[in-house]
Nucleic acid binder design. Sequence first.
DNA 1: CCCTAACGATAACATATGTTATCAAGTTTA
DNA 2: TAAACTTGATAACATATGTTATCGTTAGGG
Lengths: 194, 194
Amino acid sequence: MLFHFRDKFPLLNPYWDKYLEYQQRLELPAKTVLLEEGKVSGQYIFIEKGCVRLFFNNDGNDKTVQFFFENEGLTSFESFINNAPSAFTIETIEPSVVYLLPKQYVIQLMDELSHEPDFLKMMMQLSSMRQTHYINEFVSFIRDTPEERYQKLLTDRSHIVQRVPQRYIASYLGVSTVHLSRIKSKLAKGKLHF
Amino acid sequence: MLFHFRDKFPLLNPYWDKYLEYQQRLELPAKTVLLEEGKVSGQYIFIEKGCVRLFFNNDGNDKTVQFFFENEGLTSFESFINNAPSAFTIETIEPSVVYLLPKQYVIQLMDELSHEPDFLKMMMQLSSMRQTHYINEFVSFIRDTPEERYQKLLTDRSHIVQRVPQRYIASYLGVSTVHLSRIKSKLAKGKLHF
DNA sequence: CCCTAACGATAACATATGTTATCAAGTTTA
DNA sequence: TAAACTTGATAACATATGTTATCGTTAGGG
């Protein structure tokens, strides 16, 4: 949430540095759960190495909402902010190195920052970016077919397709693994002009 | 965005009152476009009477994202905040009475408010609420079948089903009007135990 | 008040997608 | 390294949903 804003708001950097010491560094194997659906999010997660997904469970077959990679930070925001049970699980996909900052320090940090004139601007920008992201995902889900969504993923965010196992991609696109296979084979056929 | 927060943040009321005079009152017939897709949102809309929908166009068949009713306010936020072309059209569904506050006054108002200690809290709460709304819509779209979504609409927000023409409901649920008819008739049959 | 257009129901058919099962290839574990 | 799992491809079938066409009803405009 905060640390990838270093470059955009350099004046605030001293604050980041002050809180670096409170972070816990963890080296985790793949498929490690960092936050379980139903529990209250108690820390902010920053990814140094590896990748992570946020998903929710629906009768055993889970639905991936978002992928996170190096130098990105995340938490289950609604849970974090409102002390509510998280609707999502957060889990490593690859073996990863993450930093965890407990909630109390995040609050303390935000408290200090609230005196900075740039803080409101940053929070607004941040919140507007997240909202835009979710609206775009939402619109894409309504407007585009799974095939179109897969093609966009290939062209716009191919690193996801390259790094993430196919079943998670299917879960993210909202289709079964079988159907994603169909989509891929259909697209492959379309490419073969010889 | 702002005016329905009167009750929650009464200390801020003087600010609202100060800007009431800049609002333009309009009585509009149904199907009046208040903001057109592709244009930059230049005003905040408050609904006194009637109802309004926000939608985007996709090859002629439009997709409704959200409905708004009495005492609610809206704009195409991303467009409004970033001066970007709006991804959405805003249009009255029923004959409506709305108040429009031009952007310049909204900015001026927010500027004044930024000195109030409660303002940041309000903006955070507001933005968190909107984000939660979109996430919930998004999750519901992924997790639930159109039939389930329709049933939830019936139980949780029946006023929408009562007031809004069926084709907009279908467009909101993400199905064709024909399929919504099927869903309704299926549910009606389920209710007839005699 | 009538005419026309819009709306919603329904049927028939087409397409998209899910489910289950099977198999081959790659990975992990003992 | 062998066995057990996991992954992804594919086929066959089932279900969900879209598309087009038809029809009766309703609602608005002259």
